[in-house]
Amino acid sequence: MSEIKPVFLPERQRFALEDNGKHIGAAHYRDFEAADGVERIFFHTTVDEAYAGQGLAGILVKFALENTVSSGAKIVPVCPYVKGYVAKHEQYQPHLVQPSPRHLEILPRG
């Protein structure tokens, strides 16, 4: 039986979805050290095609954002999925920082 759960993998700079230990999705981020604390830049979210249509990206992103807020970091939404998610969930508005060139320059290329 499938047991899908979100996990935090700070050493890999991502939040992941696992199905019985198998990675099936991820929300990738980079932390930016701003003057007033950490700003977590979410730049790419994926869920394996075999798991599409089950609402798993929403579960993963909610887990990632809740972890980020509880850690005291701000959310920088670059990923289109994360942008859409925070637009629909107003509770994250006080924790948002709009992406700027200084954020984008630390993201992986390609």
Rank of each mutant, 00 (worst) to 15 (best):
T68H: 03
G58N: 05
E105T: 03
R40C: 06
V97P: 08
A52N: 11
V61K: 07
G84V: 04
G72M: 02
Y85W: 05
V78F: 10
D19W: 04
F42Y: 05
I24V: 10
S100R: 15
L107N: 04
E18K: 05
T68F: 03
V78I: 11
L17R: 06
V38W: 01
T68M: 10
D19L: 07
Y92W: 12
P80L: 15
H95Y: 09
A50E: 15
M1E: 00
H28L: 11
L107V: 04
Q13K: 09
K22Q: 01
V69K: 10
D36L: 11
F8Y: 08
K5S: 04
E39D: 11
T68W: 07
G37L: 12
P10C: 07
N67V: 00
P80M: 12
I24D: 02
Y92D: 15
G72K: 05
D48N: 04
S2N: 02
V69R: 03
P77C: 14
L60G: 08
A16Q: 02
E105P: 08
E11F: 06
E18V: 03
G21C: 00
V61N: 13
S70A: 15
D31P: 01
H95N: 14
P99N: 13
L56F: 08
P108V: 03
E49N: 01
G55N: 05
Y51I: 09
H103Q: 05
I106Q: 11
I4W: 08
G72Q: 11
D48A: 08
I75R: 10
H44D: 01
L56Q: 06
P108C: 09
H23A: 14
Q54N: 00
I75V: 15
V38N: 05
L17Q: 02
D19R: 06
H103Y: 11
D36H: 08
Y81I: 10
A52D: 10
A57I: 04
D19V: 03
P80H: 13
Y29M: 04
A35L: 15
H28Q: 07
F63D: 01
E3C: 05
F15K: 05
R102W: 00
G110M: 01
H89M: 11
G37Q: 13
K83M: 15
A87K: 06
K83A: 15
S71P: 12
A34K: 07
L17H: 04
Y81K: 00
V7P: 04
V82N: 11
A35W: 09
G58M: 12
A73M: 14
G58D: 06
A64M: 12
F42I: 07
E90A: 15
A50P: 02
R14M: 14
V97S: 08
E11M: 12
F8C: 06
S71M: 01
P108Q: 00
E39N: 03
A73G: 14
Q91E: 15
G110V: 01
P80G: 00
N67G: 04
R14H: 10
E39L: 09
G55W: 04
D36R: 02
V86D: 13
A52C: 09
V78S: 14
G110D: 09
A50I: 07
P77Q: 09
K22I: 06
P6R: 09
E3A: 13
R102S: 15
